[in-house]
Design a protein around this nucleic acid. Structure first.
Lengths: 209, 209
DNA sequence: CCAGGATTCAAACGTACGTTTCAATCACTC
DNA sequence: GAGTGATTGAAACGTACGTTTGAATCCTGG
């Protein structure tokens, strides 16, 4: 049926199954069966189950984060001092786009969201190293947009935003009506930007011991 | 060493290991070893691994949600029209209290947070059924505090808040400085309340087809 | 067309898992 | 203090897992 290479069919199948059942609960046998490949193909093409997991993540994260960086570049080239709303939109849109672009979107997004709750050090390390470049660009941009916040509070609120995003896309079906990607972006930017613009919560940033 | 019953020692050990490594990645053998109990004790006292997982969750969720309901009751008895900040504080404080009350706190909170990313239908169903009573009380309270939002947007923003909370407590160590529970509550209520007070993002709530 | 590396295949490896079994031991009642 | 039900113990059950093996097959360049 599919004309894809075995390697890609395995990645596709792994993506879907990992996204559904988690990593340790998904067997290589179920992956290769769904992919129409032999069990040994995983270890032949990737080396181990762990390496397969990392390959699955890399295939998702690299273009996603590139998209994020590109959008921030374009934004900063267009306007001199981007607003919080604009920065958050640049940050969130790639995920929402990924989500809505095809049948593969929801799978990817759920898988991506699952990472933060997974205990595996390998996966966490991979995602964090991939995210470092994003943080290095977005945190200064956010700090410029909300100059009343300390760098620490900017990071904390970015964590809040990421949490909202991952939880929402992971538990999409719980939301009544299951709105589309545009609607989600709109609501999350509205909510998150207002949160970022809220006054500093920490008085310690003014010099309390 | 411990004078606790075997049943409780197993629950304690399971709590810690589930919180660290996830459910399917934690074996009954590692649980009973840590608990100083025999392997067969799990099936004797709980019936199966799945039933053990549910027992672990029930032991956490029941008092947590009772605390939430109690705080909302006390709040509504004290002031006639509670503000968003007050409702969110009532909602978030039990988790933060649980977090900071002892060494067990972080374990419980991480475990609780892990639920939303876990694929197991059993766990999700349990958590949702436990959460229904909370939603039935908190969503109307929130809707009264932010009357400019449709019921649907209130629910969406509550999802955002829950996401922020679960993500933050799950990835606590990623936050620079690792602030205490009081500080977390303060920041999250500031952020979330501003988000709730933000204008409605959906124009569809006014009657668009 | 045929050599030779790349890929696929069926089968087996050893290990770890959840669960079951049943005898041994404990705790409590009469 | 003997008897009885609750609990614990050591061991084994069957199954499923990730990985490895080595022969069979495919594909491509000369």
């Amino acid at each position: 049926m599919s004309q894809l290479e075995t390697k890609d069919r395995i990645l596709d199948a792994a993506e879907n199954l990992f996204s559904d059942k988690g990593f340790s609960a998904t067997s290589l046998r179920s992956i290769t069966t769904l992919a129409g490949a032999n069990l040994a193909a995983v270890n032949y093409h990737f080396g181990s189950k762990d390496a397969l997991i990392q390959a699955v993540f890399r295939r998702i994260l690299t273009p996603l984060n590139n998209d994020r960086l590109q959008r921030l570049d374009a934004l900063e080239a267009r306007v001199q001092e981007p607003s919080v709303d604009e920065v958050l939109t640049a940050f969130l849109t790639p995920v929402a786009t990924l989500w809505s672009e095809s049948k593969r979107g929801p799978v990817l997004v759920r898988l991506f969201a699952k990472t933060f709750a997974e205990p595996s050090t390998n996966i966490r390390d991979l995602v964090f190293s991939e995210f470092e470049g994003i943080a290095a660009r977005y945190i200064p941009a956010l700090a410029r947009a909300v100059p009343h916040l300390s760098r620490r509070e900017v990071m904390t609120r970015l964590h809040f935003l990421i949490g909202s995003m991952t939880h929402t896309v992971t538990n999409w079906d719980m939301l009544a009506g299951a709105p589309g990607a545009d609607e989600l972006i709109e609501q999350m930017v509205t909510y998150g930007a207002a949160g970022f613009r809220a006054p500093a919560a920490l008085t310690t940033s003014k010099g309390t011991p």
